[in-house]
């Protein structure tokens, strides 16, 4: 038998065995921790309630709000146009397409900051871009947009400009400045989630 056949056999078995002894490799899709730390530190991952309110009023189609609270909380109150994905289901396969959309800013919010931030962490470390947190959450939303507080008279003119915007926004979103009827009849759009069946790969092609 040729020596070369033996070499071939040895190489096959050796390289196959090499695969066995290779150390486990970690998921490369995750952003390396050193790089991710910089993203965490970047305040650009937060959007203020004012920015969001403005874009909602302008009917900006490139914003997609995701409510990570429980469905019951979502039923009770949600920001118009929001879509409910509870935190514990945020990684479910069916939402992948919702959370990573081309050219759409996905904004996560909860009552406060923490749950939204945790949801952000879980998704963003997989390399998904255009993902934001609504800073302050629904609580902040209420205290700025729905029930804005008038700034003290000593406040700067910017503060008053902001207040003017808040008042207008409050009317739009049916807050304390809105008419009673309109507020009570405000239809808050609840997005009905149709669970899409996972598309099966097309039949083989021969």
């Amino acid at each position: 038998m040729s020596k070369r056949y033996i070499l071939l056999a040895v190489v096959f078995i050796g390289s196959a065995f090499g695969l066995v002894v290779l150390p486990d490799k970690h998921d490369t899709k995750q952003i390396p921790a050193e790089k991710f730390l910089i993203e965490i530190y970047n305040p650009a991952r937060f959007l203020s309630t004012h920015q969001i309110a403005k874009r909602l009023i302008e009917r900006d189609p490139s914003i997609f709000l995701v409510d990570v609270r429980t469905p019951s909380e979502f039923e009770e109150y949600s920001i118009p146009g929001a879509f409910n994905i509870p935190l514990e289901h945020i990684l479910d396969e069916e939402w992948v397409d919702y959370l990573s959309q081309d050219g759409v800013d996905v904004v996560l919010y909860s009552n406060g900051n923490i749950y939204a931030d945790q949801a952000w962490m879980l998704i963003a470390q997989q390399g998904i871009k255009n993902l934001y947190i609504m800073k302050g959450g629904v609580n902040q939303w209420f205290s700025t947009i729905i029930q804005p507080v008038e700034p003290p008279e000593t406040a700067s003119s910017e503060a008053f400009d902001l207040y003017a915007f808040e008042k207008a926004a409050s009317i739009y979103f049916g807050g304390s400045f809105a008419n009673i009827e309109s507020a009570t009849t405000t239809p808050i759009k609840k997005t009905v989630v149709v669970r899409k069946k996972k598309k099966k790969a097309a039949e083989g092609g021969c």
Binding site: M1, Y5, A9, F12, I13, S15, A16, F17, L19, V20, L22
Partner: peptide, 22 residues
């Protein structure tokens, strides 16, 4: 079983087949 282990056993079977065929 893991891909690696399967490949390893497959390689051994393959070499055995090569030998037997010769």
């Amino acid at each position: 079983m893991s891909n690696a282990w399967f490949t390893f056993w497959f390689a051994i079977i393959a070499v055995a087949i090569f030998y037997v065929t010769s």
